[in-house]
């Protein structure tokens, strides 16, 4: 228990397991993952599809419940929170960024950014002012009244980042933030996340894009729901590639 009071750790993840049942069969999306996230760190989670990296991110953000194990932020155990406490946690302590942006297509940028504030009871005029300030922070002060369809992919993702920042949460979680973007826009988004990290946010990014590693303070490799070392990870991916090539030759 002494670990839990260690002030140098932002988040402790212990023996985290998530089992999805698909009819008769079950899938171990996460299989006993333990991690420490330092405050102000920039953690990049890498792994192939189905390695459980997105599942890990959603569990950290309180969007799903683990089958077993614990996630401790400050002195709160997320897996023990009820619906209302989780909603409050997601509202004030986490900012989410998604691969597909998840913007409300009929709302202009400033309303998309201010959307979370509706659920925190912030009055309308105040919402607008705060949304404009955060949009300026991501470099979109000239796009506040544009609807998502009138913006490029990179701009849409910046609007989504602004939305994640609107409640000033200490933790930013990004699920494949560059996955739908061209390499240039993707790189801009990476730099934006790095800037946020420099400004004090703890950032966790799930990605395929190895360019992200240059900004990372920590890199975690996930394979079949387990944390593995980089060597193991490379070996596994190489053998995987080999198998695929062999199968290709046979064909």
């Amino acid at each position: 228990m002494d670990e839990l009071t260690d002030n140098n750790v932002f988040m402790k993840i212990r023996e985290l397991t998530k089992i999805y049942s698909m009819g008769e069969s079950t899938v171990n999306a996460l299989d006993g993952v333990s991690l420490d996230i330092q405050p102000g760190s920039f953690t990049v989670v890498m792994g192939p599809s189905g390695s459980g990296k997105s599942t890990l991110l959603y569990l950290i953000g309180g969007l799903d419940w683990p089958t077993s194990g614990s996630i401790t932020v400050a002195d709160d155990q997320i897996e023990k929170m009820d619906e209302n406490a989780l909603a409050e946690f997601r509202r004030n302590r986490v900012g989410f960024i998604f691969q597909s942006f998840n913007l409300v297509s009929s709302m202009p940028a400033e309303e998309n950014v201010g959307f979370p504030l509706r659920f925190s009871g912030v009055p309308r005029s105040n919402r607008k002012a705060r949304a404009q300030a955060v949009l300026a922070q991501v470099g979109l002060s000239d796009r506040t009244t544009h609807k998502p369809t009138e913006l490029s992919g990179g701009q849409q993702q910046r609007v989504a980042i602004a939305r994640a920042l609107i409640n000033d949460p200490p933790l930013i979680l990004a699920d494949e933030p560059t996955g739908n973007l061209d390499s240039h826009s993707g790189f801009t988004i990476m730099k934006l996340l790095a800037d946020l990290n420099k400004a004090g946010k703890t950032v966790i990014v799930v990605t395929h894009d190895s360019r992200m590693r240059q900004f990372a303070t920590d890199t975690i490799h996930l394979l079949d729901g387990k944390v593995v070392s980089e060597d193991e990870f490379i070996k596994a991916t190489e053998s995987l590639t080999q198998t695929i090539e062999e199968q290709g030759d046979q064909l």
Partner: peptide
């Protein structure tokens, strides 16, 4: 459905 997911992700309670 995705919009509902988003609302929840940005802090909407079940009651909201």
């Amino acid at each position: 459905t995705r919009e509902i997911g988003l609302m929840k992700a940005v802090g909407a309670t079940n009651r909201d």
